[in-house]
Design a protein around this nucleic acid. Sequence first.
DNA 1: CAAATATAATTAGTATGACAAGTAATTTTT
DNA 2: AAAAATTACTTGTCATACTAATTATATTTG
Lengths: 148, 148
Amino acid sequence: MLIIGMTQEQFSKYSFLLDRTARRVKQYAQRKFKLEDFDITVDQWLILKNLSENELMSQSEMAQILFKDQPTLTRIIDILTKKGYVERVPHPNDRRSFQLVLTQSGAEKVEELKPKVSEIRQKAWENLNEGDFEEFKRILNKIYDNLE
Amino acid sequence: MLIIGMTQEQFSKYSFLLDRTARRVKQYAQRKFKLEDFDITVDQWLILKNLSENELMSQSEMAQILFKDQPTLTRIIDILTKKGYVERVPHPNDRRSFQLVLTQSGAEKVEELKPKVSEIRQKAWENLNEGDFEEFKRILNKIYDNLE
DNA sequence: CAAATATAATTAGTATGACAAGTAATTTTT
DNA sequence: AAAAATTACTTGTCATACTAATTATATTTG
């Protein structure tokens, strides 16, 4: 479908801006994480937070929820396990699978970081309003759905 | 600044959607690149295209334009050099620096791929209009500027 | 001008992302 | 129930991102 009044050239820019902004958002948060000695990465945080809301998830369920692939999940879980925040518990009915649980230390980490992460995330939305947020979500989701 | 009527929790979702969409956009293009045997990655393409529009750029200039860091640039240029699409020419006045130029083969590659890439990029915008595009750019750029 | 500082590029290390292939276990098919 | 297909997870490889440190060269300062 051709978009009237817009050359393909201008049009291709969205991917550049999208990539650039996504990288900066992650980089900004990661620097804060480091500065405040959170001891985890942004992606590791996502997993911890999701686990705190929904324990006993398998790795593949977690991968689905986070839209990450399984090898990536495996490796992040490896790291979180080494750091002592997560444990792999054998699944009672399926010996291929693990259930992920937060350790005590992991649960404490989540409680400690939750408000701090929210605060970091908020910075991006200065001078933008709720309508912008809705528009942004709508367009992002539309793009996402358009690509398979 | 607090956004009225929106909990921090909902609000934090933007980073997730942004990351997810950016990854899918890149992945979608990369699969097409592979399927059609383009022989380069999406990021390598960005550099070739920019070089075709502006030769004799140094690596640090290219890094600035693409908002990538220097080590990343160095490595991508290494790969493009091995593939024979780009050459490092010593800078006439500054022996620390190189000027990047497209080889004949690189220039041909750009001409060959330019329309194909535009077509691939367009897919994301089905059922979205020019107004959406402007909104999207505005919000992305605002977020970008908000984070330093 | 010499010393201090800054810049361009590289190298090294770690994390993530994508893809392919492999293993073990489970489910489906016949 | 045995064979075939599927699923869960892992391993390996390559590319990119970010950080820190290094080297060589330029620029600035005292």
